[in-house]
Amino acid sequence: MSAVLYTLLVVAVGVQRLGEMAVSRRNASWAFARGGVETGRGHLPAMIVLHTAFLAGCVAEVWLAGRPFVPALGWPMLALVIACQGVRWWCVRALGPRWNTRVIVVPGMPLVRSGPYRWLAHPNYAVVVVEGLALPLVHGAWITAAVFTVANAALLTVRLRAERAALRSAVESAAVPA
């Protein structure tokens, strides 16, 4: 795979992220119209910066460091990237209008236990972790893979804490008789 084709792959992933942002905005409106409560908004700018820097880093490292495409690594990583996109949209579909890039919980709604949520509490985060390694490694951008993985682990720690608090609060408020 040439560096040009790899760049187009990263751009395609970026375009998909823009589509996710549009879905997220629509779903946020849906949630707020039903009394949704947002938690942990403070980490969202860091998440946007990290994910944007990740995509830029993938391309920059390949071009500036002259990273080669190594077929024995690149093709399996590409297969993982493609699988990640499928699982990500499976997560979006399973959550329906409750899926969001923000932490918004509609009080009184039960937890989703269908789709990939049957097996994992946070399948989309598993996808982000796998993709964070696989996308850069498609074309040997190992520094981007390592830096993103460490930074994303720190960010996910904050994110999961916010989500758990939001869900706990929603469950507690649903248990209190009106």
Rank of each mutant, 00 (worst) to 15 (best):
S24Y: 02
G57H: 00
V62Q: 12
H51I: 13
L135A: 12
G40W: 15
P123F: 10
A94F: 14
W30N: 15
V150T: 05
G132C: 07
G57A: 00
W119I: 00
L133S: 02
W30A: 15
E172N: 09
A145G: 02
A72V: 14
G74M: 09
E38D: 04
A178N: 09
G132S: 08
R93V: 07
R98N: 13
V92L: 11
V103E: 02
A146Y: 10
M47G: 12
M77Y: 07
G35W: 12
R102W: 03
G42Q: 07
R113M: 02
T7R: 00
L167D: 01
G19M: 01
T52V: 13
F32W: 13
V128M: 06
W90A: 15
R159I: 07
H51L: 12
A56G: 03
E20T: 04
V138Q: 06
T7N: 00
V4F: 12
P45Y: 03
L167A: 03
L73E: 09
G74L: 08
L167M: 10
C91S: 14
R25G: 08
A153K: 00
W99V: 08
R34C: 11
G108E: 11
A12H: 01
S169T: 11
L120V: 11
R164P: 01
A83S: 13
V171K: 05
L120C: 07
G14I: 08
R113I: 03
G115H: 07
T149Q: 14
P45E: 05
T157R: 13
P123T: 06
T149S: 15
A72N: 04
L133K: 03
F148G: 10
A165W: 09
A146L: 15
V130F: 09
F69S: 04
F32S: 13
S114N: 00
V59P: 00
G19E: 02
A170W: 05
W75S: 02
L135F: 08
S2N: 14
A134F: 00
V62K: 08
W90K: 02
V105S: 04
L156R: 00
A121H: 14
A145Q: 01
N124M: 05
G108L: 08
L120T: 01
L64S: 04
F32H: 15
R17A: 02
M109K: 15
T149K: 10
V171L: 08
R168Y: 03
L80A: 11
A165Q: 11
V62S: 10
W89Q: 09
A12K: 01
G66Q: 13
E61V: 04
A126L: 15
A151E: 02
P45W: 01
R25H: 10
G42N: 07
R118V: 02
V4W: 12
I104V: 14
P123K: 07
L155A: 06
W63T: 08
C84L: 06
